[in-house]
């Protein structure tokens, strides 16, 4: 935490932390406390007067079908994104781990989608699935599927899941490959001598040994799906059709900036903050546990 020896106390350390602390106070702590304060207010439709209503915004949300629906969709969306991108990454990393030569070349070719902005990922996928022009609706037509994610809510949801999962494969792949490569060779060799074939070795040894990484990635992917996918939703569906893809982050934005429902949006922000805090705590518990190994 602190060095055994340190510099004598002076004004200097305060000056050193000042920039970060000032920015944190102005752009983090103050807005966050404003959000908490506003979540207790209701503003009338014309913005003329505000009323302090304690937890009314929250109790309203707890009974609001739209909000609860959005909550459920967000969870569904996150589970699908995490499962799709993690399993794809696990398979690719499992094979890449076997390869002696060229593993880094494969890595190079697989990691760059990490650098693509979510909104761009959305743009690419929305183009590929454009109902009139896109290559996939064209192919799907041959098997009798009529693709139009502007009208079909399930198709819209599938599309944002694909786009979000696609972008995250790179990240998961990197961590899985690193975890697999850190397993001592001798352990896998011992299993081979015991007569376990490659598939068996993977499920009996490699997969259990990398389970801390799986857990870590689950949390990271959940955070990603909850908060970093705004761009994808905004570009691909704008939450539609008929709110079919309105996840929580999108709803906060939409209710606040488009619907101008100050108190409701703030209450949603506060709920999201608690979710982030919970996820961060889980993540740190994991880190602590890992240190003890």
């Amino acid at each position: 935490m602190l060095k055994r020896v340190h510099f004598p106390t002076s004004l200097l350390p305060y000056l050193l932390v000042a920039p970060q602390v000032i920015i944190t106070l102005i752009f983090f702590i103050w807005p966050a406390s404003q959000a908490v304060y506003q979540s207790f207010l209701i503003e009338d439709a014309f913005g003329m007067s505000t009323e302090f209503v304690w937890f009314e915004n929250f109790t309203y949300l707890a009974t609001d079908e739209q909000y609860l629906g959005s909550f459920g969709r967000t969870i569904f969306f996150s589970v699908c994104v995490a499962f799709l991108s993690m399993s794809a990454a696990l398979i690719l990393a499992g094979f890449a781990d076997r390869i002696v030569r060229g593993a880094t070349t494969y890595r190079t070719l697989l990691i760059w989608p990490y650098a693509v902005a979510p909104v761009l990922a959305g743009a690419l996928w929305v183009f590929m699935f454009n109902p009139t022009l896109g290559i996939f609706p064209y192919i799907l037509e041959f098997i009798g599927v009529d693709w139009n994610h502007y009208l079909n809510g399930n198709q819209a949801m599938a599309l944002v899941i694909f786009a979000a999962a696609w972008k995250q494969i790179a990240y998961n792949f990197l961590f899985y490959l690193a975890a697999m490569q850190s397993i001592p060779r001798s352990l896998i060799e011992a299993a081979a001598i015991d007569g376990a074939g490659p598939v068996r070795r993977f499920w009996d040894h490699i997969f259990p040994l990398i389970s801390p990484t799986t857990f870590f990635l689950l949390v990271i992917n959940a955070v990603y799906a909850f908060f970093d996918t705004f761009g994808i939703i905004h570009a691909v569906t704008q939450g539609g059709p008929a709110n079919a893809t309105t996840i929580l982050v999108y709803k906060v934005y939409n209710d606040g900036f488009v619907g101008l429902d100050l108190g409701g949006s703030a209450a949603q922000s506060v709920i999201l903050m608690f979710l982030v805090i919970a996820m961060t705590v889980v993540q740190f518990r994991y880190v602590e546990r890992k240190v003890e190994y």
């Binding site: 404003q34 959000a35 900036f257 100050l262 922000s269």
Partner: peptide, 12 residues
């Protein structure tokens, strides 16, 4: 600050 991504406190 680790716990407050910009998306959740966007309006204020």
């Amino acid at each position: 600050t680790l716990m407050l991504p910009v998306e959740v406190r966007i309006l204020p």
